[in-house]
Amino acid sequence: MSKVTKMVVVSSYAPILSKIYKLQFDLTIKETCFGVLISGEEEEMKRATDYMRNEFGNGVFIKERGFPMGDVRRCRADRGGGARPGFYQLEREIKMLPLIEDSLNNLDEEVDYKIHPYDQDKKMNAIKLQKMIEGMYK
């Protein structure tokens, strides 16, 4: 089993750290401004993430992280400050989390909600293209 690191991001404050400590998972945990970073064996990690999803419901969002915790290639302390690479996207997505959480909470209630399809890319009509080309060379 290999070691994995995951980011647990919360849309609003949730006492994740104390709860995980309480259950004594065999994981390394670090609290951050957006939630927590957890690192450990895959099996233990699965137990912890399942627990968090059950306990905190739609308020926690979990994704994998490539670099281990405190890695000198990413850690701000060793890179002379500034945002960690990749944080900009995370920061932008964190702003959307309350809306996403709200939608997830209403998912079961609003089964009849009508989805508005996004405009999918359409193929260009061949005749229209031909007319455009003809128009160009008139």
Partner: peptide
Amino acid sequence: SLILSDLVERFGHEPLVMMRVIR
């Protein structure tokens, strides 16, 4: 993406993400 990765996993599928490749 955090949101997409989480939603795919939440709804019972396996997200193919860059982070795993980097790891």
